[in-house]
Each structure stands twice: as C-alpha cells, then as structure tokens.
C-alpha cells in the first residue's frame, strides 16, 4: 500500500537551488533514501512534504490526504525530523515530549502512554528528567526521533537522522529506524552511502532539484563497473561540481 505519494513538487527560491517537479512514492514497510549532493533540494523536498514549506505547484499525499487541501489531516499522519533535529534545550525530554503530545491533541492518559511508548522505543528511560542541553548528541537525536513518532504516524520523514553522530550512535540510530520500518513508510535524506547500504533497499537520487534516479540501491550500484553506489552517485551528479 502506498502511504506517501509525492507528485511533481516544485519550489523556486530567488538565489537558492530549487525543486523542480519531484515525484516518487513510498509504500508501507519501505525505507527509501533520498540521496543527493549538498544543495540538490533534498531538504526543500522533505520540508514541503512535512508542510513547513508551501510548494509552488505539485502535491503530496500522506496516507491518502493531500498536504495542500487537507493539511491538518496529512500532518497528523506524518512524523517529521527536521534537519539538525531542533529541540528546546531548556526542557527535559519528558516535558518536551509531553509538549509535542499536547500539540498533537494527546493529553491526559493518552499523552502519558504515548510518551511512555516512545520512551521505550527510543531507549530514553535513563535521561527523561535531565534538561536536553545536558544530553549527548546521540540522546538528543533520539529525543527528536521520539517526538516524531509520538503520535504513531504511518509515514516518517527523517532529514539526515544520523548526521553528526559518532559511529556507535549511528549504529543505535539505525537499529531504531529498522525497528520502526515494518509498519511504516520511511523516507530518509542523506548523503552518506554507508547509510543507504545499511538501511535503504531503495534510493531516490536528486540532483539540481530533479529526480535523476529512482531504483533499488542494488540497481543504482549496478550502473557502474565498480558496483559501488558512490561511483554511480558521482557519475550521475558530477556536473554539479563543475558548475
């Protein structure tokens, strides 16, 4: 079943690279990597899906709801981890998650059980009552992921979830994503190939605001003689460097 259907999303900025007619779709149980060089339009695309940016044209459907016509319903079925995983540093994970739960309309027992669930899922139990500013980067990222899955959304959009983490933290984060993958459609943006290889059977390669490849990671790797995704990536996006 297709849970996310991106259709010709377009966005122009005056000086920043734009997104021109990006389309792809993700089904339940699928983890898709949105890959591309820096500034290719990955984050802009994800931000449009999440509702933070308004597309100039095109649409996306989240669990069947249009992000333009049924924005509230679409957003309530989406878990979004923004780039850099912004958090309120003065709050404890507990207070932060309770706040996000309330924003989703989860309060009272429903809110408490949701927080308890993500506390377990994201392995946060030891740090729930410390202020976020005292937590390590790995824990902070887990808090942000916990906030994204708090309302148990069918679709997850994670913008560079492992960026800036040390290898151990990365392993933990990947394990967490893998645990969630079964029942959800997950989109991960990244420019790290090991990530793709480790987690994502499928890749959507974006370059200069357009999709230049949408295939399994194996197919993408197979495009070059070396059979490495890195080389395929380079071959497909090299002109960007020259510009």
């Amino acid at each position: 079943m297709q849970l996310l259907n991106v259709d010709q999303l377009t966005k122009t900025f005056p000086r920043v690279p734009a997104v021109r007619g990006v389309s792809f779709s993700v089904s339940e149980g699928e983890v898709v990597a949105v890959l591309g060089p820096n500034g290719a339009g990955k984050s802009t695309t994800l931000r449009m899906i999440a509702g933070y940016l308004e597309p100039d044209s095109g649409d996306a459907e989240i669990a069947g709801f249009s992000i333009r016509r049924e924005a509230m319903r679409a957003r309530s079925r989406l878990g979004y981890l923004p780039e850099g995983a912004p958090l309120y540093l003065d709050l404890t994970p507990h207070a932060f998650l309770a706040f996000i739960a309330r924003l989703h309309g989860l309060h009272g027992p429903a809110g408490r059980s949701a927080v308890e669930r993500v506390e377990a899922d994201a392995r946060l139990s030891g740090v729930m009552d410390r202020t976020i500013e005292t937590l390590s980067k790995g824990y902070r990222r887990r808090v942000a992921i916990a906030a994204a899955i708090l309302h148990d959304p069918p679709v997850l959009v994670l913008d560079e979830p492992t960026d800036g983490l040390d290898p151990n933290q990365k392993v933990a984060m990947r394990a967490l994503i893998r645990r969630m993958a079964e029942r959800k459609a997950i989109v991960i943006s990244t420019h790290q190939f090991d990530e793709v290889e480790a987690m994502c059977p499928r890749v959507v390669l974006i370059h200069r605001g357009s999709v230049v490849a949408d295939e399994t990671s194996a197919a993408l790797a197979g495009r070059t003689l070396s059979g490495r995704i890195a080389d395929a990536f380079h071959a497909l996006t090299a002109d960007g460097e020259a510009a």
Binding site: R47, A50, G51, Y52, A71, M72, R73, R75, S76, L78, Y80, P82, P86, L87, Y88, I100, L103, H104, G105, A147
Partner: peptide
Amino acid sequence: TIELLLTVP
C-alpha cells in the same frame, strides 16, 4: 524549533 511548530497539525 519553528520547523517543529509549523509541521504539527
């Protein structure tokens, strides 16, 4: 964090 606020329903 404004990105969090503007993407909640």
